[in-house]
Nucleic acid binder design. Structure first.
Length: 938
RNA sequence: GGGCGCGUAGCUCAGCGGAAGAGCACUACCUUGACAUGGUAGGGGUCACAGGUUCGAUCCCUGUCGCGCCCA
């Protein structure tokens, strides 16, 4: 028995458990050994994360694909997992320590701290996974992975060492984006350019040996202490004469050269810029071009470091310099204020302009990023990008929508070295060890690094010419190389190697996700079967972070693209189109929505709105509407049940005799094609719309209504057939909707199995419909005719204010045989009565007096409404219709009268136009007749 | 500055060379045995603007004006 109302909360939990119990989401089962594989890797959410609307959309779309392909018989692997989110997770645990007033991470030390992080992960790391299950995600949870787990860590080590040995990973001292709050380097992509209203300070630098000044404009006066030059454009007419002279750096007294460089834009500011290579990316390049040594004046915490700094070692001590050195340890923003005010005091501040410019901010810490000169590890992204570019150009991987390929190309073509080291503890520690003399050993294990060190130091002579006597005791040489002879043991006393403290960017491990999750570097069945994956579903904001890097790593290590299709979806916004954000307070919590309306309603809403290339505006109202759709489906199923329309074993609608049943079979086949094709093309909104239309506007509005006379009529073959067809079509509906609304459809699949033949499987594993030979143009034409006629009658009834319960006669004026037959068929079963409140049909030669006449499909009908109708109003109504018909005829005539049209337009279009004309002309004729009758009837 | 995209019904958006569509909202009527989380009917659009290509343009091209987003 189907309950009166659908209770999502209760059903969803139960159904999900059933799926898991049945192992329905498992990939690689023996039953599907012969099936074609279909695989998707989940974009791993942060282990710290909880489900937001973006996840809800992303995973709904993946689940639609996974369920669709599973039903199509493929061996589906939807690979789940989470990433370790280096900075985010470390921050979470550090915050927790602070809240509990426990010792901070530095006090407790690395090992202890990492224990705490793992403990946190064990406790809270499963949140988002549980939430994905509530959404209905059909991932193979038995294969869940984590970027820090053993296998994936092994993959990271292997990749790092391999790339290092190939020269594609290297260590370099250059400017990086430094986060002075988190005290780590970050990659370009983790930097947000934020437009801020700042100032442009114009500072006068005295020119050596004159009373002239050169005025530089800067947004960062505090970095001037690290200036090494002033640059002007070599063709700057006003200033180029100063090139080659020297300026006196205010507050320091150092002489710095005035150089000519294109970088100084004559139009900008004063045309002269200070050059501070240690604190600005552009200046760094200028410095390099002119052989200037960078002067760094900031600490890792972005505080001034001056006293122990070489830039003033050769300078004469002046009161100014002394005063400056007193600023030691001052924060960068305080320093800015003080420097500005000191310059002002000295009359060296020419002016201050308001100035809007972009300032880099850390996307995690939200503090201003410092370009900072340090040693970091880099990936030679440019080299790795080449095959990745080629693969997309050659169509081995396709972006959907296609225009994202342009974004991908543009970024890949201008790709910069990727800084992968992070000064954090939580993450994959870089497998590099350093021995005496800063010699580096990169290896997958410490043992190997030791071996390398041993080899190196045993053969490398030291400064004094003697062989170095290494000592590996500290790193456990006994465990590492137990077979060492005592002679070597003797020899190696004194050497120790120390591991690089830094960890890798989380995205480094994420880049391996499509194959590391499948067991690589081991040679697993999974890698062979499921790589390359079939599709990747993700947001555009992550193309650079993730998609591009997976392409690079996948191609380098597997020699094959990681995925065939990349479907890029857009953002979910609030109903006003604003980005959801905690600070704005407009966040819609998907779990709250699921609680209130059910997961299916949320999923269907997201799918219906997920048009390619458009952000989604989500309102609770729209979710409610789709919840109503679920209710509609539920009630249709109840109708079928009430009417004894049970499933019949082996029923094939192909053999249906009733027009109505042949029609719904035809429509089912049509809807199935539409949904299938749309999902195949990632047109989720079209697929959902087609299903919606079919269920509501075809099955419920017309099929169910028209089946009522048959189902409530006398027993017999027609009734039996209709029952069987109604149940059959409902089954097909459940299948078509299952990828979108898995819970309610599975529940109905279960309840409708209580009677009739046994189900072979859960719906989740049922075969996707594929219909041949159900197309029936005759049935379509007849039901179309019926719908048009009923709609016309209803329309007139409302227009004429006929009371709802009043029964009318339907007169057919000189009907064709076809019309007569059709009308009789539907009248006999009482369809006109039920759907249009028609008592009966009669054939007449002319409409009776005072009747309303309807022209439908070139037949004229009349509704006798003697005394009810206003003849004048009716004349106006008919004339309006006539005008419409005439306008149609005129439009077609214009086309057909145009010789160019007839000469150029394709045959079928011309035929179509001619048919249209015929139809309109027939309609016009009938209306003229109707008008005549109206007049004569008066 | 470079790139991508968007201006279609009151709102949110499909459609993108052959007679303007959906959902919601709105109006009127309807407690009919699946469903008021419903039914029936209806109103509402020079498809941003200006040119061009075409037999034919909401759709293709060019420009203008608005509005987003990404990258410098």
């Amino acid at each position: 028995m189907i309950d009166k109302t659908y209770q999502p909360a209760e059903v969803e939990t139960r159904i999900y458990a059933e799926w898991e119990q049945a192992g329905a989401f498992r990939a690689g089962t023996p039953e599907r050994a012969a099936a074609a594989p279909y695989s998707i890797v989940i974009p791993p959410p942060n282990v710290t994360g909880s489900l937001h609307m973006g996840h809800a959309l992303n995973n709904t779309l993946q689940d639609i694909l996974a369920r669709f392909e599973r039903m199509r018989g493929r061996d589906v692997l939807w690979q789940p997992g989470t990433d370790h989110a280096g900075i985010a997770t470390q921050m979470v645990v550090e915050r927790q320590l602070m809240e509990r007033q426990e010792p901070g991470r530095r006090e407790m030390g690395r090992a202890k701290f990492l224990e705490r992080v793992w403990a946190w992960k064990a406790e809270s790391g499963g949140t988002i996974t549980r939430q994905l299950k509530r959404l209905g995600a059909s991932c193979d949870w038995s294969r869940e992975r984590f970027t820090m787990d053993e296998g994936l860590s092994r993959a990271v080590l292997k990749v790092f060492v391999a790339l290092y040995n190939e020269g594609l990973i290297y260590k370099d001292k250059r400017l990086v984006n430094w986060d002075p709050k988190l005290l780590t380097a970050i990659s370009d992509l983790e930097v947000q350019q934020v437009e801020v209203r700042g100032h442009l300070w114009h500072i006068k630098y005295p020119i050596e040996g004159s009373d002239e000044f050169i005025t530089v404009a800067t947004t960062r006066p505090e970095t001037m202490l690290g200036d090494v030059a002033v640059a002007v454009h070599p063709e700057n007419e006003k200033l180029k004469h100063l090139i080659g002279r020297k300026a006196v750096l205010p507050l320091v007294g150092k002489l710095i050269p005035i150089i000519g460089d294109d970088y100084a834009d004559p139009e900008k500011g004063t045309g002269a810029v200070k050059i501070t290579p240690a604190h600005d990316f552009n200046d760094f390049e200028v410095g390099k071009r002119h052989g200037l040594t960078p002067v760094s004046v900031l600490t890792i915490e972005a505080k001034l470091t001056l006293t122990d700094n070489s830039f003033h070692s050769n300078l004469q001590r002046s009161p100014d310099l002394e005063e400056t050195l007193k600023m030691e340890g001052m924060d960068r923003f305080a320093a800015r204020k003080m420097i500005v005010s000191r310059l002002e005091e000295k009359g060296l501040l020419d002016k201050i302009e308001p100035h809007t410019h972009v300032v880099p901010h850390g996307d995690r810490s939200n503090v201003v990023i410092e370009p900072y000169l340090t040693d970091q590890w880099y990936v030679d992204a440019k080299t790795l990008a080449q095959p990745a570019l080629k693969a997309v150009r050659e169509g081995k991987t396709t972006f959907v929508p296609k225009n994202w390929e342009k974004t991908y190309f543009e970024w890949m073509e201008n790709i910069q070295p990727w800084c992968i080291s992070r000064q954090l503890w939580w993450g994959h520690q870089i497998p590099a060890w350093y021995g005496p003399g800063e010699k580096r050993f990169v290896a997958e294990t410490e043992a190997e690094a030791c071996a390398q060190a041993l080899k190196f130091y045993r053969t490398a002579p030291m400064e004094d010419g003697k062989p170095y006597a290494p000592n590996l005791r500290e790193v456990g040489i006994d465990a590492v190389m137990p077979a060492l002879s005592s002679a070597i043991r003797e020899e190696i006393t004194g050497l120790s190697i120390k591991r690089d403290e830094d960890v890798l960017d989380t995205w480094f491990s994420s880049a391996l996700w499509p194959f590391s999750t499948l067991g690589w570097p081991d040679d697993t069945r999974e890698v062979a079967r499921f790589y390359p994956t079939s599709a990747l579903v993700t947001g555009f904001d992550i193309i650079f972070f993730w998609v591009a890097r997976m392409m690079m790593m996948g191609l380098h290590f597997r020699k094959e693209v990681p995925f065939r299709d990349v479907y890029i979806h857009r953002l979910v916004r609030d109903e006003k189109g604003a980005k959801m954000s905690k600070s704005k307070g407009n966040v819609i919590d998907p779990l709250g929505i699921i609680d209130e309306y059910g997961a299916d309603a949320l999923r269907f809403t997201l799918a219906r709105e997920a048009a390619q290339g458009h952000d989604i505006r989500l309102s609770p109202q729209s979710v409610e509407n789709n919840r109503n759709f679920a209710t509609k489906l539920w009630n249709a199923a109840r109708f079928v049940e009430f009417n004894g329309a049970g499933r019949v074993a082996g029923f094939n609608p192909n053999g249906a005799r009733e027009t109505l049943n042949r029609w719904i079979a035809h429509e089912t086949a049509k809807a199935t094609r539409e949904v299938t094709e749309a999902i195949e093309q990632y047109r989720f909104n079209e697929a959902a719309a087609a299903a919606y239309r079919f269920v509501w506007n075809v099955y419920c509005d017309w099929y169910v209504e028209l089946s009522k006379p048959l189902l409530t009529g006398p027993d017999g073959p027609a009734k039996d057939e209709t029952r069987a067809t109604a149940a059959w079509a409902l089954d097909e509906i459940l299948k078509l909707l299952h990828p979108f609304m898995p819970f309610i459809t599975e529940e109905l699949w279960r309840v409708t199995a209580e009677t009739g033949p046994r189900r072979d499987s859960l719906l989740v594993l049922a075969p996707w419909p594929k219909h041949d030979g159900l197309d029936d143009p005759d049935a379509e034409a007849e039901i179309g005719w019926f719908i048009d006629l009923v709609t016309a009658i209803r329309s007139v009834r409302v227009e004429m204010n006929v009371p709802g319960n009043a029964l009318l006669n339907l007169e057919m004026i000189n009907p064709s045989n076809e019309t007569l037959e059709r009308a009789q068929r539907w009248d006999e079963v009482g369809a006109f009565n039920r759907l249009a409140r028609i008592a009966g049909t009669t054939t007449v030669r002319a409409a009776s007096k005072g009747s309303i006449q309807l022209v439908v499909s070139n037949s004229t009908f009349a509704l006798p409404l003697f005394g009810v109708i206003d003849v004048e109003a009716e004349r106006v109504r008919l004339e309006k219709e006539m005008q419409k018909a005439e306008a149609d005829i005129k439009r077609v005539d214009q086309k057909l009268g145009n010789p160019n049209f007839v000469a150029n337009a394709p045959e079928e279009i011309i035929e179509g136009e001619k048919e249209k004309r015929e139809e309109a002309e027939g309609r016009r004729r009938k209306i003229v007749e109707a008008l005549d009758r109206l007049k004569s009837a008066q």
